[in-house]
Design a protein around this nucleic acid. Structure first.
Length: 512
DNA sequence: TTCCGACAGTGGGGTCGCAAT
DNA sequence: ATTGCGACCCCACTATCGGAA
């Protein structure tokens, strides 16, 4: 199959907003793909490279290369060239990589260049990724969408399922079962603004500590232990202490879900930055493990002794977990019978925050494990802080925000009467707000840059954030975590905005 | 008819590792 | 040694479609 066909279909998908139409377009293309092309075409149209990341980014891809006039590239050839590029990334020089990219781009037409750019940078912007591709695959093969979806969750890969389905038909789906050693996409949580709201929605539930660490899925099959992240990357080698602990547990074959986190000597959680740095260290793991040891804290069991627990209610899965894992390695929790029992939930949240953790996750006791989904049966509750800050500058948006000033530079007042930038945010804005701020900020502009505008520091904006973290990038030595716009405060003057001093005082645990 | 769950998109900061300067 | 880049951790929020209620 020619790459140009994919580029055209991708454009058509982007051009329609109807998901049913997107699905139909994908299904048609999947049906037309030759068996050899299937492992390439499916991921490409789901906006993904079969090779995973290549070590090629926006920078190298942006170097201008004159496009070809005639479309001649086949998907097989593109795949071969990208595989070559991936190999060079592992060993070779950047110059060699740039040469290979230029060669590939030079063989592509204008449309194909655009498609490849999006594919490699991970920004296809066609409004259809994995989930829509799964629908298309179901339609192309006549398999029930729910069955295809489940098989993809269990295989942890769309491509594997697609190949089997297109080669053997819907019967192949039964092959994909939960298997120890093969990671499944983890269940995710929605947000709730309070425990009252969460308990109201879920009724009988467990309220568990939410730890600010790294999500892990631990598989043990006899003497073999494997540990995977949220995105199913294998990080076994970086967590030797976890492997050792897994061997101590009372079971031979199991899959557990949990979090790893570093605690200090007093048993309080260390900052996310410290835990993440430790888990990210790959070169000298032994030293890193000595300096920042991490502990596993498990909260779910997906499989025990060959039994698939995914469809069991949480209460039963947790009973299995408790049988296998001693209490210190399980997440702290309390059981709540329903809205009448709200005080217990609220006390537990207060206690959890006192212990230095992020918040809580409220989980329905009767819900199955929804692998790969953001199920409504897990609700996280975290305290929100707010500040009144001043807009110092704004950057032009991309994609659907093209032509709108989007990303705001936020400043707090300093002792000398100026402003110190604390970070940026593009979150929390409605389309109407984007339009309004684009106009308003241009009125306040003092300087126009390629990336946006700097403005007179006059506009006050209320910002919600999750906490403070140390920063080497910003002048106050700190930055906001997960900042988002709540509303503009045109009733406030910049002299009334919050100061760096009061911000630091509100977070004594973070010292710049 | 209205409501709501699921998705995609738009990016944020930090850290690590590697190659180039 | 320092800098720039890419990968991968953490993540919030809005718009939209289409099935459920």
């Amino acid at each position: 199959m020619l790459l140009t066909r994919l580029a055209q279909v991708s454009q058509e998908i982007a051009a329609t907003s109807a998901r049913s139409r997107k699905t139909a377009l994908l299904a048609e293309l999947f049906r037309d793909a030759e068996p050899d092309d299937v492992p390439i075409v499916i991921p490409y149209l789901a906006g993904r490279l079969p090779q995973g990341r290549l070590g090629i980014g926006w920078k190298v891809l942006s170097l201008p290369v004159p496009p070809a006039t005639e479309p001649t590239l086949t998907v097989a050839e593109v795949d071969a060239r990208l595989t070559e590029l991936g190999k060079v990334s592992g060993t070779g020089s950047q110059a060699e990589r740039a040469r290979l990219v230029a060669e590939l781009m030079g063989a592509a037409t204008d449309d194909e260049q655009r498609f490849l750019f999006g594919l490699i940078t991970g920004e296809v912007r066609q409004g259809a990724l994995d989930a829509v591709a799964v629908e298309g695959l179901a339609q192309a093969t006549g398999a029930p969408p729910a069955d295809v979806r489940r098989a993809v969750m269990l295989a942890g890969s769309l491509q594997t399922v697609a190949e089997a389905l297109l080669a053997e038909g819907p019967g192949a789906l039964t092959r994909f079962r939960l298997t120890v050693g093969r990671p499944v996409l983890p269940m995710l949580a929605h947000s709730a603004s309070s425990v009252a709201e969460a308990v109201e929605k879920l009724d009988a539930c467990a309220v568990e500590e939410k730890l600010d660490g790294i999500r892990v899925q631990l598989h043990r099959d006899g003497d073999t232990v494997r540990i995977y992240t949220r995105t199913l990357d294998d990080i076994t080698d970086r967590l030797p202490e976890l492997t050792a602990m897994a061997m101590e547990l009372r079971g031979e074959r199991f899959i557990l879900d949990g979090e790893v986190i570093a605690f200090d000597a007093a048993g309080r959680p260390r900052s996310f930055q410290e835990t993440a740095g430790r888990v990210g260290s790959r070169v000298d793991v032994a030293t890193a493990a000595k300096e920042v040891p991490v502990s596993p804290v498990f909260f779910d069991a997906l499989s025990v002794d060959g039994h698939d627990l995914l469809d069991l209610p949480f209460a039963e899965r947790h009973a299995e977990l408790a049988r296998l894992v001693p209490e210190p390695m399980r997440v702290r929790r309390t059981l709540v019978s329903g809205p009448d029992d709200l005080t217990a939930a609220e006390d537990f949240l207060a206690e959890t925050l006192e212990r230095g953790h992020e918040g809580v996750v409220v989980k329905a006791l009767d819900a199955p494990y929804s692998a790969g989904r953001r199920g409504a049966s897990w609700l996280k509750v975290k305290p929100v802080h707010t500040l009144d800050l001043v807009v110092l500058a704004a950057e032009w948006g991309h994609g659907r925000r093209t032509g709108k000033l989007s990303n705001l530079h936020l400043g707090a007042r300093t002792a000398d009467g100026g402003f110190a930038m604390l970070g940026k945010t593009f979150k929390g804005m409605t389309d109407a707000l984007l339009t309004w701020q684009t106009e308003r900020l241009q009125e306040l502009a003092v300087e126009t840059k390629g990336w946006g505008v700097t403005v007179r520091p006059e506009l006050v904006v209320e910002i919600a954030y999750d906490g403070l973290q140390r920063s080497t990038r910003y002048p106050a030595g700190v930055t906001l975590r997960f900042a988002r716009v709540v509303r503009y405060r045109e009733d406030k003057r910049p002299e009334e905005a919050d100061t760096v001093e009061t911000l630091l005082a509100a977070h004594p645990e973070v010292r710049p």
